[in-house]
Design a protein around this nucleic acid. Structure first.
Lengths: 148, 148
DNA sequence: CTACTTTTGTAGTCGCGACTACTAAATCAT
DNA sequence: ATGATTTAGTAGTCGCGACTACAAAAGTAG
């Protein structure tokens, strides 16, 4: 095999995408750990939050609409919403005007848990991105890279 | 349920972490799509690349060492390396000096595929972060947020 | 040397996240 | 109105990514 090096750089952190990935995975892990006591995953939280937002604007929210909004695919969204329904956090009625669509609604329990989760997330997010955040090292590398 | 709003902001994109997540997931998806013809996932690529880097510095690379370097956990790393071994891209000998550890080495096939994958990644990464990147919208939102 | 602790790797589970493939309902074209 | 296409949702698969729990080897303390 040839001896000329494969990479022109010497550290993976020199790739912007890789750095972005490392930082985001760290954030993702932290958020999930903080949410665990509440009994939600980050994905479940973001779908609940998306549903809340869209509902609050008066929309009739279908699974596809929510998936578009949250940038998740409809197959995954379908499964997570089934989980959330089993937990009693959302209701999935069939839409009288469209036999295909499911009409989503936050239950009172769902709204309560979302409120709880949001408080946790606010706190955790601040810690992560704040000046004293444990991930400050990688994140600051990312900042330097994006601005340089 | 109380009518006071849960969120003080009105769009999920106002959360730095969420925006970071969206952008990174977009990048992750793109990289995996580009790598598919090569027959690698992004994670497999990054472990191969990490192994290459460490080996090139003369280290005797164990799974734990590679996991630390790539910021992956050792359980996942173990499984992905078993996959890579089955594909004939890495060798996992047992270390004579440490009965617990596996000594990792890129095979010639592994180095060849890594070289191929790297070319693909360079190209894809440039497209993603370049001025004409399809994800420019979200990414530029992220930039603005991080700098503003 | 023996007992305790730490380290390395593995098996198996859960929940995404991206797929393919499918059903059924709505819409569009003629 | 009927045939073709599009759209909403579901089932099942694969590969992470984080876990728990475990086995075995190495290191450490007495």
């Amino acid at each position: 095999m040839a001896d000329n090096p494969i990479f022109t750089y010497t550290q993976p952190e020199e790739s912007t995408g890789y750095l972005l990935w490392q930082v985001t995975m760290g954030w993702h892990l932290r958020m999930n750990q903080q949410l665990r006591p509440v009994g939600l995953t980050l994905t479940q939280f973001s779908l609940l939050a998306g549903l809340y937002w869209l509902s609050r604007q008066g929309e009739v929210v279908t699974q596809q609409r929510l998936a578009d909004y949250a940038h998740t695919d409809r197959m995954m969204t379908s499964k997570v919403l089934q989980t959330l329904e089993k937990k009693g956090l959302v209701a999935r009625r069939s839409n009288p005007h469209d036999g295909r669509a499911k009409q989503l609604q936050l239950t009172d329990a769902g709204e309560g848990l979302l409120r709880q989760a949001h408080a946790v997330m606010q706190q955790a997010d601040g810690q992560f991105f704040g000046p004293l955040g444990a991930e400050a090292g990688l994140f600051n590398q990312l900042l330097a890279r994006l601005m340089g």
